[in-house]
């Protein structure tokens, strides 16, 4: 039987981990902004020629979709099977769109947690623990959730979000997007990716000069100034999704009584459409991307998500 001393020790370790994780979370973005990782901080126009530009695809592309993964992500490559399946079906559903899905939104330097870091070994072990049903998922989620908080922070946000915008622009260019073409861009932010999308929107709009729409799939989002720069926010919310409520509870700008906030002004202007998914939770079984859970009409949750997004994309 576990004694009180052991329990206290474990609780203390968890609290210390949370504290250290929170306190250290802004430094990657701050160091990048300050140019501490070698050379000057990257400005978009300076860095642009260095990006690898792929030949535009042969098919007629009417829009670009950028998928920003949820806080369970650890690297640029989408590794969760349900996210991969979601992207495969979405790609089939909107053949005239290019999907950019190789951005790790919880690092402004686009570095995977499991590589090119001092603590990469730790994150590899954590991922291994997660994949074997252990506590690893909790640590990864907490780490990435603090990056979402950095993006939402009044002080850190502008730096982090410019970094995210740089990554998205680089991803778009690598998939053949031509800056200045005015081709519409849709950002799909799953979970914490919703905040990253909104945060980056201000800087994307300035550089792309194209219509930007955001789809928040169970998005954890604050009242971000980025709402001023987008055409529309489609907010898909499951009635059993408790994670998306983090944003509504903790980000004061989303409280209805603060009528002057970016969020409430955007809502009043009709820029936010909330799409409720009955009985759907955030992730895993019963989540937005679950193909094994079904609505009363027999449609799977994943198909419903795809169908809703297709309607939005074709609107």
């Amino acid at each position: 039987m576990i004694g009180w001393d052991t329990l206290y020790t474990v609780l203390l370790i968890i609290l210390l981990w949370l504290l250290l994780s929170a306190l250290s979370s802004p430094f990657e973005a701050l160091g990048w902004w300050a140019g501490w990782y070698g050379g000057e901080a990257i400005e978009a126009q300076e860095a642009a020629p260095a990006y690898k530009v792929m030949t535009p695809p042969a098919r007629d592309v009417s829009r670009y979709i950028v998928f920003l993964t949820g806080i369970a992500g650890v690297e640029q490559k989408i590794y969760l099977p349900n996210e991969r399946e979601f992207l495969r079906r979405l790609d089939a559903a909107v053949p005239n769109a290019i999907i950019v899905d190789d951005i790790f939104p919880y690092s402004v330097t686009n570095r995977a947690l499991t590589a090119q870091r001092v603590f990469a070994w730790f994150w590899r072990y954590t991922l291994w623990r997660k994949e074997h049903g252990g506590w690893g998922g909790f640590l990864i989620n907490i780490r990435n959730l603090f990056q979402v908080a950095v993006s939402a922070d009044f002080r850190y946000g502008p730096m982090y979000n410019q970094g995210s915008a740089e990554l998205i622009i680089r991803g778009l260019r690598q998939h053949g997007y031509r800056i200045g073409s005015g081709r519409p861009v849709v950002l799909i932010g799953y979970s914490g990716g919703g905040q990253i999308a909104l945060g980056a929107a201000t800087y994307l709009k300035r550089q792309l000069k194209a219509p930007i729409r955001v789809i928040g799939l169970g998005g954890v989002m604050c009242s971000d100034i980025g709402l001023n720069s987008i055409e529309h926010l489609y907010y898909i919310r499951g009635t059993r999704d408790l994670v998306q409520q983090i944003g509504a509870i903790f980000f004061s700008g989303r409280w209805p009584l603060l009528s002057g906030s970016y969020w409430n002004r955007a809502k009043e202007a009709g820029k936010i459409t909330i799409l409720r998914f009955e009985q759907v939770s955030h992730n895993g079984p019963g989540g937005y991307l679950d193909d094994d859970s079904h609505f009363d009409d027999g449609q799977s949750y994943l198909d419903k998500t795809i169908e809703t997004m297709t309607e939005i994309l074709n609107a």
């Binding site: 306190l23 939402a152 922070d153 903790f250």
Partner: peptide, 10 residues
């Protein structure tokens, strides 16, 4: 130094 904490620091 807790002011460093994102979002809640201030």
């Amino acid at each position: 130094f807790l002011a460093l904490m994102p979002y809640f620091g201030s």
